[in-house]
Design a binder for these strands. Structure first.
Lengths: 215, 215
DNA sequence: TTTCATATACTGGAAAACCAGTAGAAAAAG
DNA sequence: CTTTTTCTACTGGTTTTCCAGTATATGAAA
């Protein structure tokens, strides 16, 4: 699709005025802009959206806002404006945060250290329906940390099976019935799982297992 | 970066011969190919990688393999070949599956219904360090299902706080001490959380909360 | 000001999990 | 064939969670 397009309406949800100023200048210089709307809080933005003003093409969304976190806001925006492209725009370079934002409806993420041209390129990619990341985020996503990959202890086949059933909310008695073993056996497997994951209870076990993509 | 590049080595991990045949033809027609290696199981692929043959530029990875699931394989490949680009190549169009593959080191995903040109474009994007999806996957990622967005029950501020602490593995007594309230209060919050999420225990609560990106 | 939602706290009890230990059979690996 | 790993199962006990109910104070919304 051509990059010539109708003038854009872009919303900036960001609580640092100097950042807003800089973004405005970059956007105006390099994109066909109809309007740029600035919001310092999530609440302000949501209220404005609910007033039903003209559509927003792109939202540049900080993760850290004074009144709510950007991930919750992202999900809420996506409900209200399903066709709007949301790009994270933040200092946070934590991989799981980026993935969380994507999981909540964003289609890209730009670190605040990105150059003007990177920012514009990401917005254009987003408008083309691409998933759009600034360069450093691409590197972060393509190379999961060594710690993240190595931290996974080896689980036996039976342990994995029991882990999944625990995550489904089944009690040890339930699991014992399903697998036709003694509840004592299930309890031993649970204990072994908790030792391998270095946790003390089922809640932490499931949290850790989910983080390690074992479920 | 130019798309003229050194001849590529591409691995196809796929158990349907007709799919492998079709992929081969597409790749040979449109890319500078040094070698195409075919594997029908994850184990075959891992063994070959461990023999230390020449590097692989791109892996096209089915999710459903006879001997293991593609997500586990993806993670294992990424440990062994950190600089190789892995693209999912599957019939599964479930959004969470795509996100899981990305979380495990893949840099893209192609549905099997993609055209030849889409496949080539994705591979070229991946080689450029882009996150690369075929068109339908882009649509799926950009529009989380209404069900997925709406299913999240509203949690109060205190509930969210207690949910996080439960996920950290803290007992109700621990949480009560930290928040300077009665353990009975924490127990009531837990019960309310479980009712809202329609679960019966902490393991299922944490699993569900993670799926809903509340943690 | 009133109503509703949230947060707090308790009773009495049962169920489940966690703890630390021990131990043997079967399967897998060397 | 031997050794190691996995899976199985139990004892005795404590801690924690889950259950269903009730109730009041405070804050927020109408």
């Amino acid at each position: 699709m051509s990059h010539d397009r109708m003038p854009l309406t872009i919303a900036i949800v960001e609580d640092h005025p100097v950042v807003v100023e800089g973004l405005q200048r970059i956007l105006i210089n390099d994109l066909p802009i109809r309007a740029i709307r600035e919001y310092y809080t999530g609440k302000d933005f949501i209220e404005d959206v609910k007033r039903g003003r003209q559509p927003i093409d792109v939202v540049l969304l900080d993760i850290t806002l004074p009144d709510m976190n950007g991930i919750d806001l992202c999900r809420e925006i996506k409900v209200l404006l399903p066709d709007t492209y949301i790009l994270g725009f933040s200092n946070h370079n934590d991989r799981s945060l980026v993935m969380q934002l994507l999981a909540n409806g964003a289609c890209g993420y730009i670190l605040k250290n990105a150059s003007a041209s990177e920012i514009i390129t990401c917005i254009l990619h987003a408008l083309d329906g691409q998933v759009a990341f600034s360069e450093e985020i691409k590197r972060i996503i393509n190379k999961p940390s060594a710690q993240q990959l190595k931290a996974i202890p080896p689980l036996t086949k039976r342990e994995k099976q029991i882990l999944k059933m625990i995550a489904e909310g089944k009690t040890s008695v339930d699991i014992a019935k399903d697998l036709m073993v003694s509840p004592f056996t299930v309890e031993t497997h649970r204990r072994n799982l908790m030792q391998k994951m270095d946790v003390k209870n089922a809640a932490a076990l499931i949290r850790t297992a989910t983080e390690l993509q074992l479920l």
